[in-house]
């Protein structure tokens, strides 16, 4: 076989040549050596990374302008099904290969010496990404500490579907600790109050709880993230929220920029109860105020028409947006940033 000394060409020409490669060739080329990887990186390809930790695989889905490859690790690699039966979490073994699917065609990529972290870092490197946009943890099969080491740069962390024990939640906490945003799908509060409070006290950009959760005043006062959303919150009485607002007015939760509750009440919802003892001002609907919030990591702008203004002791304003029915209400509190 005759050979062509590609790497002896000027980098600008090499880049032009490899830019003409199909994605699979490009990926294979990048795995040949560190210099080859850097050359692929220099093409300035960019992409967003989405990781799904599933029971039978760890899937890295990459969304780029020109390509959207999907990498699967451990699927059909005989990774200790017996361990799952014994209900042990498993360490992340060295993948035997990566399955990469491009346009419905699946191929195997091999790099014997690569641990999973090497694979992830390699992909982040060639797609010029510094972090994973979203990580979905939908199983507790894998050892959380190992996961935290591999996925140490995550913007949005979402999960888990099911936690078996307090240790699981500790592990979950370990994985989520480096992300900016955390979405918690399922969470059993009882017995895990301490861990729950740890999550509330972290200075995330955004925390969202998607499952029903009963909140006390102490829980609310521990919130330290900029934005917090409770999709199914419940309170023993409306007084909890009323007292939370009064604490905020006195200076609690200083980092809070937005908090939203979709909540149910055992008693009938009454606005007067919610605002009792608070100095507030009802704003006419023709006043429009613009706010921003994070929506899956992206900054989105929206406009509030009217609402109820309250003022903190340091002069900071917030607007309450309340839509109540008989036993439920959607309550949003948005702090003015200027």
């Amino acid at each position: 076989m005759s050979f062509f000394l590609l790497l002896h060409l000027p980098d600008s020409i090499i880049r032009k040549i490899i830019h003409g490669f199909e994605l699979l060739q490009l990926l294979e080329f990048s795995l040949l050596s560190n210099r080859a990887r850097l050359l692929v990186r220099s093409l300035n390809l960019t992409a967003q990374f989405f990781v799904f930790i599933r029971k039978d695989e760890i899937c890295v889905s990459i969304s780029g302008g020109r390509w959207s490859p999907e990498f699967s690790f451990y699927k059909n690699q005989g990774v200790s099904d017996d361990m799952v039966q014994r209900e042990h979490q498993i360490d992340l073994p060295r993948p035997k290969f990566a399955d990469v699917t491009i346009c419905d065609q699946t191929n195997k990529l091999y790099k014997e010496e690569y641990e999973l972290k090497n694979w992830v870092d390699h992909l982040l490197s060639i797609f010029n990404s510094s972090r994973i946009q979203e990580l979905y943890l939908v199983t507790d099969r894998y050892d959380f500490k190992s996961l935290a080491k591999v996925f140490d740069r995550v913007e949005i962390f979402e999960g888990p579907r099911e936690l078996r024990s307090a240790e699981d939640f500790e592990g979950f906490w370990n994985v989520s600790i480096t992300s900016d945003t955390i979405y918690i799908d399922e969470f059993v509060y009882e017995g895990k109050e301490e861990k729950f409070h740890k999550t509330l006290m972290r200075n995330y950009k955004h925390v969202a709880f998607f499952n029903p959760i009963s909140l006390s005043l102490d829980d609310l006062l521990m919130i330290n993230s900029s934005e917090t959303t409770f999709f199914y919150a419940s309170f023993s009485t409306q007084k909890v929220l009323n007292r939370f607002l009064k604490h905020w007015i006195k200076g609690s939760n200083p980092r809070l920029e937005a908090i939203v509750f979709n909540c149910n009440f055992e008693q009938k919802f009454e606005m007067d109860q919610l605002l009792k003892g608070i100095d507030y001002k009802i704003v006419p609907p023709d006043r429009e105020k613009r706010f921003s919030r994070l929506e899956r990591g992206a900054l989105e702008y929206y406009t509030l028409e009217g609402g109820i203004d309250i003022k903190r002791c340091d002069g900071t304003f917030a607007t309450l947006n309340i839509n109540g029915t008989e036993h439920s209400a959607s309550i949003g509190m948005y702090v003015w940033q200027y």
Binding site: F3, F4, L5, L6, Q25, E28, L32, S33, R35
Partner: peptide, 13 residues
Amino acid sequence: PEELRIIYGIPTD
């Protein structure tokens, strides 16, 4: 990949 390495004369790390 191994053929690629040979064709383009790419050294290992």
